[in-house]
């Protein structure tokens, strides 16, 4: 595909932020009371990561994913990629149901590849832990490599490929819990909590009456790709921030409650996420508050703790104190 060879068109930082804000505005129109989650979704989208939502049924996951999908204009109708797709994972699925299969065409007397649902911009994977590990593993390659391999033939996914997977935290009978290796592919695991009272009332009030369709501006796939490139290039990440991240990872690994600490990959994934948050908050540099805000989301689901160790978020927050202190103090020194 030409997109991977051609240098990504760049935007100004303000324009990149405007792209993100447009998406934010549209999603907020459809999803009420989820501003924090929306921000994380945007961070994952622009930070080129994937998102695992842990939530109860009927809490607006699909609405959120759909709203995101509709916010993106399909400005290349001929490439055959829809902006949004949803897959409901079930135990009897096969990898081909996700990636696509080779189909025999009697006319050409040959096998042709029929793309699966992963060939899209935004993919909502519902109840990811309900399917067998091999299907989960097939998705794993898509997420990590942005490509699918069927019959030894690799097919490139779109650069924008963004997975939002969900799982129910309580209903775990007959599930295949995601192994740590797979969880590590997700940038965030977001635990959505129930929305507040006022927002819930607002949802009820707006349900009966038909709402006018959202006429807020949408963004194109290319704009998102350009914005990603811009923020990677333009938002400054100080070596002190790198130090802080590494120190944080080491502190987590040294924590006695931790059996398995965080991976180096997670640190690599963290940098663009931090840059995105900085951009969303109107800065052109990564600040300590970005680390403070994102670190629990980025690291907590990658930990394996000793039994009875409690909430992994606390482990991350405890480990955060010293590196953050060093970072803050460092700013007063040369």
């Amino acid at each position: 595909m030409d997109a991977e060879l051609a240098p990504a068109p760049t935007l100004s930082l303000d324009a990149a932020r405007a792209v993100a804000e447009k998406i934010r505005a549209r999603v907020r129109y459809d999803v009420m009371g989820r501003d924090a989650v929306i921000e994380l979704v945007l961070v994952a989208l622009f930070g080129d990561g994937h998102l695992l939502l842990e939530d109860y049924p009927g809490s607006g996951k699909t609405t959120l994913a759909k709203a995101l999908g509709t916010a993106i204009v399909d400005d290349r109708p001929d490439d055959g990629l829809p902006t949004f797709r949803r897959v409901q994972f079930t135990p009897d699925m096969l990898p081909g149901d996700v990636t696509g299969v080779m189909v025999f065409d009697a006319n050409s007397n040959d096998f042709h590849f029929r793309p699966g649902p992963v060939f899209t911009h935004v993919l909502l994977v519902d109840e990811i832990n309900r399917t067998s590990p091999k299907v989960q593993a097939a998705l794993l390659e898509c997420m990590a490599e942005k490509q699918v391999t069927v019959d030894n033939q690799s097919h490139r996914l779109d650069d924008l490929f963004f997975v939002m997977a969900t799982q129910n935290p309580l209903d775990s009978v007959g599930t295949y819990p995601l192994p740590l290796a797979q969880l590590d592919r997700f940038l965030f695991k977001v635990r959505m909590v129930h929305i507040d009272r006022a927002s819930e009332l607002q949802v009820l009030a707006s349900w009966g009456a038909p709402r006018p369709p959202c006429d807020l501006p949408r963004v194109t796939r290319d704009q998102i790709i350009a914005a990603r490139a811009t923020l990677r290039a333009e938002v400054e990440v100080s070596p002190r921030v790198h130090e802080c991240l590494v120190d944080l990872a080491r502190a987590i690994r040294e924590d006695k409650r931790c059996i398995q600490g965080v991976s180096t990959r997670s640190l690599v994934l963290a940098v663009p996420a931090l840059q995105t948050l900085a951009l969303l908050r109107g800065r052109d540099f990564v600040a300590p508050e970005d680390i403070e805000h994102l670190a629990p989301h980025i690291f907590q689901h990658r930990l394996s703790l000793v039994p009875g160790a409690g909430d992994p978020t606390l482990v991350v927050k405890d480990a955060l104190v010293k590196p953050m202190e060093a970072l803050a103090r460092g700013t007063l020194r040369r």
């Binding site: 400054e236 800065r283 052109d284 540099f285 700013t331």
Partner: peptide, 11 residues
């Protein structure tokens, strides 16, 4: 604070 952090961590 923001200006200070930008001077140290940013541009």
């Amino acid at each position: 604070t923001r200006a200070h952090l930008r001077s140290v961590l940013g541009r």
